[in-house]
Design a protein around this nucleic acid. Structure first.
Lengths: 336, 336
DNA sequence: CAAGGGCAAGAGAGCGCTCTCTGACCGAGG
DNA sequence: CCTCGGTCAGAGAGCGCTCTCTTGCCCTTG
């Protein structure tokens, strides 16, 4: 690694002081255009790039944002295209603001601690916590130390004063759309494969399901999965045992819906003729399922962008404002 | 944000000098155990966390690694679970080495330039370039400036002196396994849906296909896709037009294989009875396809880990060594 | 013509840390 | 007795940058 030029070097070359070069590099006004040009040339010729560590040391800004997945990454990253979309959205926005994105995956408990140390140490301007579990202690810990933090997904203890700002989708509303559609097409015995009940998305989507059933005077038939395909298969089988006469299923995630499709096929039920199926997420695979899956689309990319925008706003001293809730949209395909 | 304690503060509290605290914090030997304990206590009580910017400024290390996806991220991150696996693998390893992971997605040309500036500026100890396009100028630019760089996927100009070190999978060998299997089960007219011919993975897998066909005295039937599902559908249709009598297809990616499955179904061909299909990648969806897809598994997670290990080794001054080529494995399911 | 105001550039003090160098103190050997 | 080598803690010099403060200049004004 060859020695990289410093401000000092550039200043010497341009025949000005360090301070002036700094002003030019940082785009300050109040610099004589002629001198500015000279400095620019020197910067160019020397290939000068500011040392961020030095800058960060004095400005106490890091120009970076941490994106934390504090789940054990196995589940998080395997199947689920959602996380990639969020990452993309966040990256999109951080790039636009010229910030860097530090990705932290909490594999081990040691990783957890590491993340907490790192993020609370002021090495980032803000933290996006994409953990879906409500019980995650990280957001609160960060907030306590004054680090700007934004959560993806309404935290479980929401409503409590001091809950960190968050970005979420209309989980209740989306589920209502899905189940409402099932009701509208005349289904009578509508079951659900709920998500894990320690995650807000799991809880809220079940709430939406129950809301519609209550209002339409139907009995609820519930099995619980963990958002994975395998759990969808198991839950569907359970449902078929519990109520062989069911004629519709709302799955709280597309992966579970795909699993349900598989279980239904194995059980000899036709979709949607015998059993209508609606999922949630609109993952790419949903459109290619057999039959193509009717589902509730969430704007993941937009969610990532919003997350980044919000944390950046907080980092620049603005107030949090109300939680951002993004709309969902029912995508009707063939399965219901 | 409350003022975070500095080394100075800790030193004052422990009644020692800054240097001693530094020694303790950095785990140097040659410190009296008693004093060490006192210092540790002070660190604990004050909640001291070292300022990385300051440390980095003097040590000229960044303790972080950049992972660059220099493709337009649309394709990269959408469907493809591969990237998530690589990220996970890299994250796994960086965490183990207590390094940070800076993720950079080149969306725009401006992003490209930004990445180049950032990575060449010495703000990271090393760079992992996960661009699959052989023509990417970034690795060479980095190598020129002395920044440790590792590529995922053998670069196109390999063999040329000064090609950066890389980690790749047995693309040729994997394709040979796949097509060999097709030959072994008695297929006569074996077509391929090749990947893009400006990517090494695309080129190499086609080479593997041709190798086996040549040796087994069969005619090659080739259509080219771009690794996406949609392109798989289109290519399969083309193939069916070109040679309606084909009885097997090797697709250079699972997504294309899934597309092929769909096109075959629509064309009324049974898989594997009429046409056998083999994919490449072993994405999670492959196991759930109708019928479950026979494919070539690549150890993506391991690839990520190896990538990280390699760049970390380079960063610590070790030599590159030969390219790391990870083995692939034929996973026989029902489609062939 | 002197005094005041405004603006551009330089000087210099750190930001928090590491690391070399110096100095103090100990026990051993001449 | 003094010297020598060895170990461990402190002193202090920066790392490259930003930013406040000061200085110097020119133009306006009384």
């Amino acid at each position: 690694m060859t020695a990289r030029p410093t401000l000092e070097k550039v200043a010497a070359r341009a025949g000005v002081s360090r301070a002036t070069v700094s002003r030019v590099v940082n785009g300050s006004t109040h610099v004589n255009p002629e001198i500015r040009a000279t400095v620019m040339r020197a910067v160019e010729e020397l290939g000068y790039v500011p040392n961020l560590a030095a800058r960060s040391l004095v400005t106490r800004r890091a120009d970076s944002v941490a994106l934390v997945f504090s789940e054990p990454p196995t589940r998080v990253f395997s199947d689920d295209p959602m996380f990639a979309s969020i990452i993309r959205g966040v990256g999109h926005e951080t790039e636009a603001s010229d910030k860097h994105l530090v990705l932290m995956l909490a594999g081990s408990p040691r990783g957890q601690e590491r993340i907490e140390r790192y993020t609370t140490a002021g090495h980032v301007d803000g933290v996006i916590v994409a953990s879906m579990h409500g019980a995650d202690p990280l957001p609160a810990a960060l907030a306590r130390r004054g680090v700007p933090v934004v959560c993806s997904g309404r935290p479980l203890q929401a409503g409590v004063q001091g809950a960190p700002p968050c970005v979420d989708v209309e989980n209740v509303g989306g589920a209502e759309q899905a189940v409402g559609h099932l009701v509208a097409v005349g289904r009578r015995r509508i079951a659900t494969i709920a998500g894990p009940q320690d995650m807000v998305a799991g809880i809220d989507r079940l709430t939406g399901y129950r809301n519609v059933l209550r209002d339409s005077d139907r009995r609820s038939i519930v099995a619980v999965g963990d958002f994975t395909r395998e759990s969808g298969v198991a839950a569907m089988r359970q449902l078929l045992r519990d109520d062989p006469g069911l004629d519709a299923v709302f799955a709280a995630s597309d992966m579970m819906a795909l699993g349900a499709l598989q279980a239904l096929r194995q059980a000899g039920r036709r979709v949607p003729d015998d059993v209508a199926v609606v999922g949630f997420d609109d993952v790419p695979a949903a459109a290619y399922a057999e039959p193509p899956l009717t589902t509730v689309r969430q704007p993941l990319h937009e969610m990532g962008r919003e997350l980044a925008r919000l944390v950046l706003a907080l980092a620049s001293g603005q107030d949090a404002g109300a939680p951002v809730i993004l709309p969902t949209e029912l995508v009707v395909r063939d399965s219901a």
